[in-house]
Nucleic acid binder design. Structure first.
Length: 522
RNA sequence: GGCCCCGUCGUCUAGCCAGGUCUAGGACACCAGGUUUUCAUCCUGGUAACUCGGGUUCAAAUCCCGACGGGGUCACCA
């Protein structure tokens, strides 16, 4: 998909860096995967190398194509471009078979007829005896007669790698040297009974064939790496440099999982699992990228808000942290706001447009000119695009809904002082010329001074009339954005309603039971 | 449970490898004050951490050992 123009890696020797992101097609881009992809991408860009994609679909009966498309979409949203067509493992069976052949011919792999049920029984037994069940060569040697018998029974063998009896050390760029003792290494399955390679087999072959020089992946794979090294040795394939990343955790230290992926958990501060949900919740991709980059890595000089180019320039595996990181949504919110504040107006409008498309926010009805008028008013006030949409709704409403609490506090309190003031300044608005924020503010300040009032005494009643509540952007900017006619109409409506606020409440109240105990406050 | 990894403010982290300059720095959040027409922004200040116990050393957040805590992994899933 729209491969980016390649970096300056074409001219160099054969040592150009190649990284890859290799998700299994789950149907969405996992936020942890996004960070892995980001680090791989940053490293490739920093080194002038290439960043590749591979879909690990050696298992699935699910819809690979659709599921992979969702992942591509997530990567595109984050603007993490890749440098060649993605590789699909399910289309490479011939290649894997070739390597299976080699292994068998070299005596490095053998058929195993033990069934999953039998294995499970052995494992259960081992657990009971508080032993490890580490599959060595137990069922490697069978006679031809036995083999024939198994086949006649309909058993489909798997292929296992004959592990050499020696410890294996991973030289990891993040965790250093990690050694696994020989006794811990088992003869793992490399070909499933359906003929497909296991993850271990496919990953080693594909990384080698794709020329991957640096494997950047989650720490959950650190324990698999000795297997991969053993396979590389057996196959005579090249060994990439490994860099394992610490795990991304929930605020409570638990692992981020799809099971928490719902609004209830979000309200408890759990981060969305799917990158698409960050988009839907009004985060800017550059903010997410910046935030993710800093979860487990830092430039070492205290910088936090960094452009993509700055991230690329500063990135390196040496400063990747070794401990797991908890996802702190509040900091993402802050960072997102920084990006909203820093976005050029036209970019912000475009982002709002994209965000609002297809939603039922009142703001979705706004045209670009209206959004452009509002953007400067909300860039200081919205941490996410969703907050913008939620708090700016009154601009687009046909009629404002007056918040009773606001009416009572601002308009009716003190014998209707606010209401009286609202009536008095109505004409100031009606006659404002030009109808612009600065001159209007001047006029109002003069008005207030002559009466010995603070501006707030005047601004709040207007705000309630215009927005329905006590919170809005600066009132004169708000009036201008809404327009003179609409503003006056809202003020008149508010005056009317407030004047009769306590008239005939019986009609309303009679039909309702008296306040139940435990009525909720604001 | 076995094996592996990790352990500095509530959170993300700097510092650790090359021990003193660390009365441990920054950021988010929080608290207080200031600016202000509301909210917010912005500015100033503040609370807050080296998991614990041994050892090495003149000196340890930094080196070593142990305990405890957290995480990962133990599939014919990736």
């Amino acid at each position: 998909m729209d491969p980016e123009r390649q970096g300056n890696c074409m001219d160099s020797s054969g040592s150009a860096v190649v990284t890859r992101f290799a998700p299994s097609p789950t149907g969405y881009l996992h936020v942890g995967g996004a960070r892995t992809a980001l680090y791989s991408w940053l490293f490739a860009r920093k080194q002038g190398g290439r960043f590749l994609l591979r879909i690990e679909d050696t298992d699935q009966k699910r819809n690979t194509e659709e599921a992979a498309a969702a992942i591509f979409e997530g990567l595109r949203w984050l603007d993490l471009g890749w440098d060649a067509e993605p590789v699909y493992q399910s289309q490479r069976l011939d290649i894997y078979n070739e390597y299976f052949r080699k292994l068998i011919d070299a005596g490095r792999a053998y058929e195993c007829f033990v069934t999953p049920a039998e294995l499970e029984a052995y494992r259960a037994q081992a657990r009971e005896q508080k032993r490890d069940f580490i599959y060595k060569r137990e069922w490697a040697r069978i006679t031809d007669a036995q083999r024939q018998k198994f086949i006649d029974e309909g058993r489909q063998p798997v292929l296992r790698l004959a592990m050499p009896e020696q410890a294996i050390t991973v030289d990891d760029r993040v965790f250093g040297q990690v050694t696994t003792a020989a006794e811990q290494l088992e003869d793992f399955v490399i070909r499933k009974s359906d003929g497909f390679p296991t993850y271990h087999m496919a990953v080693v072959i594909d990384d080698a064939l794709m020329g991957v020089t640096h494997v950047i992946r989650g720490q959950e794979h650190l324990g698999n790496t000795p297997k991969h090294i053993a396979l590389q040795d057996a196959l005579g394939l090249s060994r990439p440099t490994y860099a394992h990343l610490p795990i991304l955790l929930n605020p409570d230290g638990s692992k981020i999982s799809k099971r928490q992926d719902n609004p209830e958990m979000w309200s408890k501060g759990f981060p969305p699992v799917r990158v698409g949900d960050y988009q839907r919740r009004g985060y800017l991709p550059e903010a997410l990228v910046n935030f993710l980059a800093l979860l487990g890595w830092n430039p070492g000089d205290g910088r936090e808000l960094m452009t993509r180019d700055e991230l690329i320039a500063a990135f390196g595996p040496d400063r990747i942290v070794q401990s797991n990181a908890r996802f702190n949504l509040e900091k993402l919110d802050w960072m997102n706001q920084q990006y909203i504040q820093g976005s050029p107006p036209d970019v912000l409008v475009r982002r709002l447009r994209e965000f609002l498309a297809g939603t039922d926010y009142a703001a979705a009805r706004a045209d670009d000119a209206q959004l452009a008028a509002l953007a400067p008013l909300y860039r200081q006030r919205a941490r996410t695009l969703a907050e913008f949409a939620e708090t700016s709704g009154f601009f687009f409403a046909d009629a404002v809904e007056l918040d009773p609490k606001a009416v009572e506090k601002v308009l009716l309190a003190d014998d209707g002082a606010g209401l009286a003031e609202l009536k008095r300044v109505r004409d100031l608005i009606a006659s404002a010329d030009p109808f612009e924020a600065v001159p209007m503010e001047e006029a109002f300040k003069a008005h207030c001074e002559s009466l010995g009032l603070k501006l707030g005494k005047v601004a709040q009643p207007i705000r309630v009339a215009i927005s329905g509540g006590t919170v809005s952007p600066p009132i004169f900017d708000t009036l201008v954005a809404i327009g003179r006619e609409k503003s006056l109409a809202r003020i008149d409506a508010a005056i009317e309603k407030a004047t009769h606020w306590n008239d005939a409440p019986a009609a309303k109240d009679a039909s309702l039971p008296q306040n139940a105990p435990g009525d909720v406050g604001p």
